[in-house]
Design a protein around this nucleic acid. Structure first.
Lengths: 237, 237
DNA sequence: CGCCCACTTGAGGAGTATCAAGCTTCGTGG
DNA sequence: CCACGAAGCTTGATACTCCTCAAGTGGGCG
């Protein structure tokens, strides 16, 4: 998952390094015991407070983490895509539940198998730092943005090349103009991610269509007519 | 944070393991170049998008991280106390600004000095995992809790033995009865942490006094008359 | 073709923000 | 020691956003 762009974010100085790092991880991972799992969409991977002896890497697909309050209120606390790690606990147990959003392929990795390698620890480190940055960005969204801005931010996240497993490598200009966004989450999931109700999400999207920000041939395929215009409404510019 | 203590802080059930880890880190840290800094309260440590070549460990005091939207809206995205690490960036630059809440002593550590040690990486990872867990918990607060629940949760966080550098080690019952909470943040900072306005925070606290949850001899010293009762109102039980 | 589920739309209300005064507290200097 | 001023906090009146409850509507699949 990636943070949204700020206007000046020009110098992507080290894409080479990123690629090199990724390759290194691929090589290293080959040396670890890991079990590949194939899961249907909307499959629970683990529940909150389940013991966490292993974690997961997403090979393909998408996963969400969520937490529940005792009265049933739900909050989605993370979205993950290919290459992301999830399921690393702070203590012994998971602090949130995990569920696939789409059919997914995961690698399950024993926690203790990475304990003794600097390279592996470093890789985990990088993933965690990105997670922390993403969570902080989402904290701003939940704490300070209006419903409209939240939905706009969400859609910007989903623009190809910007979110969920596809790291921001392009220049900001590359996201301008049109873009087709595939919505793989239900309205309820989006609402629980954005701290809104399903009705509000629906109304905002309808409003965006009315105002000409979006068109939709199918319910789960939104065409953003002007990515820049919508981005300007997301509270970040 | 100079968390001042009141009542019981009784069962430190698992101090053995924690202490062992902590001691190991202390020993390791001694071998790292680190510069001790002493800062007054409300001192900016770094700004968002400043280059991040070194990070910090809090020896004593308290620090908050925050992010700003272009129009000036502010969201506090993290609170840290003694033993916590902060200022580790996802990329090259800081993703948020850092400011002391109280007079603080920090150790500044060069990022590259920890690159090559498994133990140091592991320690950083543990800190990051706790940060991730805290951020997720806060995400639930911002996304799904009412203003009253947010303030109640905040106060519970500040109860000695529960928050800011002192992790929850006690059983829930141990927090019952009275507790004195020292408020080192301004109303504005609390509001920006909880995603509310200063007026709402003020009103909620006044309401809590009226309803008998709190008394206050001074503005910055709240006595919670029944920690359990307030905790039950925090949305977690 | 029709059912079911997810989504949309509407009306009304609760909860929080906004705007505008007052009120404390605390530091400063007379 | 007290008067004063400034900053932070509290309180009130009002507005507005988003939630709740309740009916529709539409698309996918048997």
């Amino acid at each position: 998952m990636t943070t949204l762009y700020s206007a000046r974010d020009t110098d992507r100085t080290a894409p080479a390094a990123v690629t090199a790092e990724t390759t290194a991880w691929e090589a290293l991972r080959a040396s670890i015991r890991s079990k590949t799992v194939r899961l249907a969409e909307h499959t629970i991977i683990y529940y909150e407070s389940d013991p966490a002896d292993r974690f997961f890497e997403i090979v393909d697909g998408a996963v969400m983490l969520f937490k529940l309050l005792p009265d049933g209120r739900r909050q989605v606390v993370g979205l993950f895509g290919p290459g992301d790690l999830f399921g690393l606990p702070s203590g012994e147990d998971h602090d949130s539940a995990a569920e696939t959003l789409v059919p997914s392929v995961l690698k399950a990795i024993e926690r203790r198998d990475i304990e003794d390698s600097v390279e592996l620890q470093r890789h985990v480190n990088r993933c965690l730092l990105r997670q922390v940055a993403d969570l902080r960005e989402h904290t701003v969204l939940l704490g300070r943005k209006s419903a409209f801005e939240r939905v706009a931010s969400y859609l910007m996240h989903m623009v190809p090349g910007r979110g969920l497993g596809e790291r921001c490598r392009g220049r900001p200009e590359s996201g301008c103009d049109e873009a087709v966004v595939r919505i793989t989450m239900t309205r309820q999931e989006i609402a629980d991610y954005l701290g809104l109700t399903i009705e509000t999400v629906s109304r905002i999207i309808s409003g965006m269509k009315r105002k000409g920000f979006l068109t939709a041939d199918r319910q789960d395929r939104l065409k953003i007519t002007d990515v820049c215009a919508l981005c300007r409404q997301s509270g970040m510019h």
